[in-house]
Write a protein that binds this DNA or RNA. Structure first.
Length: 872
RNA sequence: GCGGGCGUGGCGAAAUUGGUAGACGCAAGGGACUUAAAAUCCCUCGGAGGGUAACCUCUGUGCCGGUUCGAGUCCGGCCGCCCGCACCA
């Protein structure tokens, strides 16, 4: 019999319409079933989806559909991370309003996502640029402000003097603004900060409890938070050398043990002491200015020579009576970390050593490497940072490093000569407060009014939202809000006198730090609805790219804590399970002139690549992650048009483990397409030939073949279940392939020995299971097959098949038999056979006897239900 | 520099966590069907060697060594690649 080819162009939109009409993916908040919240990181509405989206949302959809079948009330929403610079760039380049550009893009991408057949509750959709969303975000800001979680302070920022805006570090390329190309300046600006550093310790500690997070991400966050334990020491300035108002210099160190090796002090160029000196000392001022011009890019830092300016100030060594140390302003000291000042111990810190060599400062070794001779030990060009025992250090001599650290901390933190302790133990973090001010139009306005008399005044809640004005122009650089006087000039909410709105908007990372909570009650008149958010969170499975391992995921963890503190939710960890998927890659192509060429324009025959139109030769380059700039992109729309969404989804899940990068190949897609057709042929043919009435009528116990068919199906069921639970989609795919191959085998076998009614019933059951196993991955094909199998409901609504455990049990098992660790045969024995019986059977095998030869059998190891090994 | 991960056929990968290495897919080769092609189906497919044959032998998971009856998996030492952070005191 011939079966018509499966035509996804027809079936896919039809099934999508059926799903939508029946609203089967809409999720209620008052459902008695256990909840399961699966979320993929929401997309930025750039205009078109790319293959990375296809991979990400396919994985999430498999989990969502699987959990739904398993009886969970599944929340699987979608939204848009819609604020940000590209919309403004479009406005500047093409004169389109950012809002129009964004909402047009959303419409286009929503259509594309729907064509993938994702089981999403579209009723909960929102964009972060919707006024309803950023209104609530402004409330959160005010609540955070009230709770003391917001700060306003000066901070150095990257300033682009041409575009007149602050740039993120990622937007500074080789010291120049990425758009304007202008040399970026370091400027101090007053900015709004979220006090994430208040939670440094908590955010770090809690990482230990994130068991369903990738180890890699947990480590990255730990390192980013960067906890260190040390000693904060105050060095007394020599009074006759110190400027007015300065009597001591505070430093933070993790190596108090090396204090006797100190030979200088250094402060950051923007340290208060350095500034004070620069006020009156032109040479110092020149040096500070030079440091500030220095770029912040990696290359600059690597190239930069350690340089300093000797201030002539001296400090007293806290442990050596009468000994003083010079104080430098140095270009390698960061004001951001610790106290912005250090003591330099050249013997045991490479940076300090480089500096000491340039300025001819003493190098005193104080830690002796194990086994070295103290008389002969000197430091040349490499500082010693290893383990050892203390030398040249008075009362510390002979101690280990930890002992010496303790001893110094002890001594200095107890009241010293004058009664005041000179130091205290201190824990420091690398994590900085989160600066959220952006000099941008297309973002959430910060709800603050600046008044000459009252200062920064929060906009009263009843006056929210602070809406973005529509009538803005992008013909000049800078922030259009700044020059929009009708919007900007308002009376002070407190005193009523003329005042100015805050014209900065929030970092878009704020928007994405709580959207997952908003999905629980997306239309609520408060940021969250407490019962809903507490019922849905934490997210059971969050899926996204590893590029968000630090920023987005850390900010969201902070935000959840802040929301808890302000009563907007009752938990502090938003993401129970996290999965970071790999990227989608493709070969790259270049023409003779070295221009990138799209894969669609390339034909490859016998390994030789040519341009489709012209036949001109093309060189095949490296496989790299898909990017517009290299043109190695495949448009998901074209793939869906040609092969259907199921083929694209199936290919995305096949072969490569989800956390690794996948290479998109034409041949691979063709393979997936062939499988779609193969499945359809099997199901269509078999379902037509086997009457549905046999389903429950057959006596399955009668036929060995029926038993085998059922066993095959249930084994696959157990495996696929396990694989999806562990997100091992590539293995689940392999299981489905294997099952379909086996079922084909049985089906073709009927030509030799016709099916009994029991066989037919078993076949029907097996096919039903097979369709359900791939339904989460290829939902449209599954619905069509389901219909062919005469099922009345939708497979998307069907309960997951129940595993018949009894079929997995085996009464006889086949054990491999090894001789000295090499396989020489196998024995088939009853499952509960005695070890001695197994041994006897194994020693009778021809291959085993041949391998043993003349050697005596020394030992036979029988591992029950595993293996037999004969030692000869 | 610091931290982490990974090395298995021509390729993507499996291997129940110490128990038959290479499941499954792609590519390749051979065959069937066809006037032909597409589609489909069957066979072969880590390497070397042997046999008329069903098969047999040796070898093989980056390299060297160790533990074990048994190592892709555990331990020690190298080599190579990838990722993250990076003047953090």
């Amino acid at each position: 019999m011939t079966v018509e080819r499966y035509n996804p162009a027809e079936t896919e939109p039809a099934w999508q319409a059926v799903w939508e009409k029946n609203g089967i993916f809409q999720t209620g908040n008052d459902d008695p079933r256990p909840k399961y919240y699966v979320l993929e990181m929401f997309p930025y509405p750039s205009g078109r989806i790319h293959m990375g989206h296809v991979r990400n949302y396919t994985m999430g959809d498999v989990v969502a559909r699987y959990k739904r079948a398993k009886g969970f009330n599944v929340l699987h929403p979608m939204g848009w991370d819609a604020f940000g610079m590209p919309a403004e760039n479009a406005a500047m380049e093409r004169g389109i309003h950012p809002a129009k550009w964004t909402y047009d893009n959303i419409a286009a991408m929503r259509k594309q996502l729907k064509s993938m057949g994702l089981s999403i509750d579209w009723d909960r959709e929102f964009a972060t640029c919707d006024v309803e969303y950023y209104h609530q975000q402004q409330k959160l800001f005010l609540d955070f402000l009230k709770a003391g979680l917001v700060d306003r302070k000066n901070r150095k920022v990257n300033w682009d003097p041409v575009d007149r805006t602050v740039l993120a570090n990622e937007q500074v390329i080789d010291g120049r603004g990425w758009r304007s190309g202008a040399l970026v300046e370091q400027r101090e600006l007053t900015q709004w900060f979220f006090k994430i550093s208040d939670y440094s310790e908590d955010l770090l500690q809690a990482i230990g409890r994130l068991e369903r997070w990738p180890e890699k991400v947990r480590l990255m966050q730990s390192n980013w938070i960067g906890r260190s334990e040390g000693l904060q020491i105050r060095f007394a300035l020599e009074p006759d050398t110190a400027p007015e108002g300065f009597s001591e210099l505070e430093v933070y160190t993790t190596r108090p043990d090396t204090l006797f090796g100190a030979s200088f002090m250094a402060v950051a160029p923007d340290h208060p002491l350095a500034r004070k000196i620069a006020e009156t000392n032109t040479q110092a001022a020149a040096f500070v200015a030079e440091c500030q011009r220095m770029g912040t890019s990696l290359a600059d830092i690597e190239m930069a020579e350690k340089r300093g300016y000797d201030t002539r100030i001296r400090v007293a060594h806290p442990l050596i009576e009468g000994h003083t140390l010079p104080v430098f302003i140095a270009n390698f000291i960061l004001m951001d970390y610790g106290t912005g000042a250090i003591f330099g111990c050249p013997g045991h810190d490479q940076r300090d050593l480089d500096f000491a060599r340039s300025y001819d400062l003493p190098v005193i070794p104080v830690v002796l490497p194990d086994g070295a001779d103290s008389a002969a030990f000197t430091i040349e060009n490499e500082a010693f940072t290893g383990e050892g025992l203390m030398i040249n250090s008075a009362f510390l001599d002979g101690m280990t490093i930890p002992e010496a650290k303790e001893a110094v901390a002890d001594k200095l933190s107890k009241a010293a000569f004058e009664g005041e302790p000179q130091a205290e133990r201190q824990v420091n973090f690398r994590l900085r407060d989160w600066g959220i001010s952006r000099q941008r139009y297309w973002g959430c306005p910060i709800p603050i009014v600046h008044c000459c008399d009252c200062g920064a005044v929060p906009v009263p809640e009843e006056d929210l939202p602070v809406r973005l004005p529509d009538d803005v122009s992008f013909d000049k650089p800078g922030n259009p809000l700044d020059r929009h006087s009708a919007w900007k000039e308002v009376p002070c909410p407190k005193c009523g006198r003329p005042a100015d709105r805050e014209t900065d908007t929030m970092d878009t990372f704020v928007d994405s730090s709580w959207y997952f909570a908003r999905f629980a009650a997306p239309r609520a008149k408060t940021p969250t609805e407490l019962t809903a958010v507490d019922a849905w969170l934490p997210i059971d499975q969050y899926i996204g790219g590893v590029e968000h391992a630090i920023l987005h995921l850390l900010y969201s963890r902070f935000f959840t804590r802040a929301m808890r503190k302000t009563g907007h939710c009752s938990l502090d960890e938003p993401f129970d399970g996290l999965f970071t998927q790999g990227m989608v890659c493709h070969e790259t192509y270049k023409d003779a002139e070295g221009h990138w060429v799209f894969p669609e324009e390339v034909v490859i025959e016998d390994g030789v690549a040519r341009q489709r139109e012209t036949g001109a030769p093309v060189t095949i380059g490296h496989i790299e992650s898909m990017s517009k700039s290299k043109k190695n992109v495949i448009d998901p729309d074209h793939i869906i048009e040609r092969y259907g969404a199921d083929t694209a989804r199936w290919f995305m899940l096949s072969d490569t483990p989800p956390e690794r990068d996948i290479v998109w190949t034409e041949a691979g897609v063709e393979g997936a397409w062939r499988f779609v057709q193969r499945i359809w042929r099997l199901v269509a043919e078999a379902s037509e030939e086997i009457s549905p009435t046999v389903e429950n009528g057959g006596d399955t116990g009668e036929s060995k073949r029926a038993q085998d068919i059922r066993r095959t199906a249930h084994r696959a069921l157990a495996s696929v279940e396990d694989d999806i639970d562990k997100l091992h989609f590539n293995r689940a795919v392999a299981q489905v392939y294997e099952l379909s191959n086996q079922l084909y085998g049985y089906w073709n076998g009927r030509e030799a020995i016709p099916f009994t009614p029991a066989d037919s019933a078993a076949m029907r059951e097996a096919l039903t299971i097979m369709v359900q196993l791939f339904a989460p991955m290829m939902p449209h094909l599954a619905e069509t097959c389901w219909q062919a199998l005469d099922k009345k409901n939708l497979v998307s609504n069907a309960a997951w098949p129940v595993l018949d455990e009894s079929l997995l049990e085996q009464t006889v098992i086949t054990l491999p038999v090894q001789v000295n660790g090499k396989k020489r045969g196998e024995v088939t024995v009853p499952k509960n056979a005695d070890k001695s019986d197994i041994e006897t059977a194994a020693l009778e095998l021809e291959g085993v006897l041949r391998a043993i030869g003349e050697k005596p059998v020394r030992k036979v190891i029988v591992v029950p239900e595993r293996i037999v090994n004969v030692v000869a």
